[in-house]
Design a protein around this nucleic acid. Structure first.
Lengths: 197, 197
DNA sequence: GTCTATATAGTGATAGAC
DNA sequence: GTCTATCACTATATAGAC
């Protein structure tokens, strides 16, 4: 059993290792500039091992993307439970995404700014993904609540979170130097002031 | 002279035709999913003709990108001259970009949302391009003017234009149906309220 | 399950006729 | 200046040994 669990663990580790190498390479060089050879080399394994765990390069990207969407969905659901006003929920989302931008930049880059449709034909566009849908739902509750101005949902959600997405983009580009969390209060106030009732 | 000017005109047209085909294909399928064959086929010419006008596929993308940045720079400069407050200038920029999103969606998509660094290694990242720099300059003048809150430049610019960029993105994705211009007033007011002094 | 070696296909770009 | 034909290369993915 010792050996068995070790093997299982190794397999899990290898799978994760491949996903990790792929994530870093996809975000730094881009999906199409990354060959399976590059991934293999970075993970210190052979092509055969890669194709044992994944059926194709595309599948690696797909699993990566789906995992990230799921993780975000869970995090957002937790926020939904912990807070009960649109104000607090939206602010918590902004805080979370700013923090993840610092702690897991590659994941944020790949989830938010990769052009998934170009290499995962079957992928849901990020705009209609679960996490983004949840954000709109939270805003909708805020409108029903009279917390937020009664403007068309997509519009007001974009106004509220547009600055945040832009800043995450700039931070990942290194146009902004320090951690975004430092600016959370300022950015939140600008955003909220724009849409609050 | 009739023939000469006709030839010159034809050449110009051919060059433009290649650029146009490339632009549409790059935005719909992506740069890497578009082969020179695809461009050739779409423009109804031969590979030889393409390589007579451009040294490589990369150069086509580069010329395309540079042309778009130049066009935007000129348009922004005109706005600088026509208006004299940050409020009016920024609003005019938003109006212009919303309008261009409807009239020239492929150009907007390629200029704003293509991952240029992945296929044009020499390209300036869009964030430090001339048009984006001008936007920050306009906001800076507005801060000096006491029109806009005195917050770190990149932050306040992102808050002001973040919603706009997000909406353009959603519109190009077809997440939003109607023309954005219809919502200019609403969006502008949310954005301005957030950063105005 | 992991390896090496290889098949196959498609790419960007060039050569040379017209 | 535009064409056709073709080169040289790299990529993904597979086969089969261990």
């Amino acid at each position: 059993m010792g050996r068995r669990s070790k093997n299982i663990s190794d397999n899990e580790n290898l799978r994760e290792k491949i996903l990790n190498s792929a994530l870093v390479l996809f975000t730094t060089k881009g999906y199409f500039n990354t060959s399976t050879q590059d991934i293999r080399r970075d993970a210190n394994i052979s092509v055969g091992a890669v194709y044992h765990h994944f059926s194709s390069k595309e599948e690696i990207a797909k699993v990566l993307y789906e995992n990230l969407l799921e993780k975000s969905t869970s995090a957002f659901q937790e926020i939904m439970l912990r807070y009960d006003t649109a104000h607090d929920r939206c602010r918590a989302i902004m805080a979370l995404l700013f923090e993840l931008t610092e702690s897991r930049p590659a994941e944020m880059e790949f989830m938010l700014y990769a052009k998934h449709r170009e290499f995962i034909p079957s992928a849901t566009p990020i705009c209609s993904s679960k996490p983004l849908t949840m954000m709109r739902e939270i805003v909708q509750l805020g409108i029903a609540n009279k917390e937020i101005m009664d403007i068309e949902l997509v519009l007001v959600t974009s106004c509220l979170f547009g600055g945040m997405f832009r800043l995450i983009n700039l931070r990942l580009d290194c146009t902004i130097e320090g951690p975004l969390s430092k600016h959370l209060d300022t950015v939140w106030e600008c955003a909220w002031r724009g849409v609050a009732r």
